[in-house]
């Protein structure tokens, strides 16, 4: 059973977000990139665990991105991925990213495709379900626990206002969040091994672009905090009612 893990490169969580060219281009200057935390901490580690326990034969990684994503892909290989594939195009359009992943995975026999619940840059939370639709597979979103027994997958997943346990037969696409696994740190052996693991560059398939980001905007700056006398919570309530109008 081969697992495909979708790896997205994103700015570090503490990165200062800024834009240039009249707010149309993300300013990457001084920004460090990381593997999207959900992809690294949960999807990849769970895939490795399934392989280590003999339930999976290989863990492949796929990234839709240009050559600048390779350091991040190498880190994922250092954690333990077997082979990586970089689809050589870059897009903010989820239809393009999902279309590329689906075109790549089609017919390759991946029975479990793992992606993060959301990327922390574009926050679409949509790639996994799109890939599932394009490959005519089931999709189980927002998993907090993923178990495999034979060819049956069982997940605990978040639903609106609660959680549920679902099960289905492979193949399936699952989006993962906290709970699925515990984050790991790459060790020296993994880092050395990653240097020689295959990282194949795949030319992009013909996939139509259906959306594009035309501009960015920073949220309005707060006008400054109004400090309230800790002895006078009636005043805070009054302000929340008559000034902020939220209660």
């Amino acid at each position: 059973m081969k697992i495909l893990v979708c790896i997205s490169q994103v700015p570090d969580t503490t990165a200062k977000i800024a834009f240039s060219e009249n707010n149309t281009v993300f300013n990457a200057q001084g920004v460090t990139y990381i593997i999207n935390p959900y992809d690294e901490w949960y999807c990849l580690v769970r895939a490795l665990e399934l392989k280590e326990s003999g339930l999976a034969s290989a863990v492949h990684l796929v990234t839709v991105g240009k050559a600048d994503t390779e350091p991040v892909i190498r880190k994922a290989l250092a954690l333990g991925g077997d082979e990586a594939f970089r689809i050589d195009t870059d897009s903010s359009d989820p239809s393009v990213v999902a279309g590329q992943i689906a075109a790549f995975a089609q017919g390759q026999g991946y029975e479990l495709i793992l992606c993060g619940k959301e990327s922390i840059d574009y926050n679409n939370a949509s790639i996994g379900a799109m890939v599932a639709e394009l490959l005519d597979m089931n999709f189980l979103g927002f998993a907090a626990k993923v178990d495999l027994a034979g060819s049956t997958i069982t997940v605990n997943r978040e639903i609106d206002g609660g959680e549920e346990t679902d099960s289905c037969e492979l193949p399936v696409v699952i989006s993962c969040q906290k709970g699925v696994a515990e984050a790991r740190i790459p060790n020296m052996r993994g880092i050395m091994a990653a240097r020689t693991k295959p990282l194949k560059v795949i030319p992009p398939a013909a996939v139509a672009q259906l959306s594009s980001i035309v501009a960015y905007e920073m949220p309005p700056a707060k006008s400054g905090v109004k400090m309230i006398d800790p002895e006078n919570m009636d005043e805070l309530v009054r302000l929340l009612h008559s000034e902020a109008k939220v209660i």
Partner: peptide
């Protein structure tokens, strides 16, 4: 809606109908 229901259903709809999508 952009919740666990909409985030699972709407991308599938978009992919099937070749529709561009804005989430959230």
């Amino acid at each position: 809606t952009h919740d666990t229901t909409g985030k699972a259903v709407m991308p599938r709809v978009a992919a099937r109908l070749q529709a561009g999508m804005v989430s959230g």
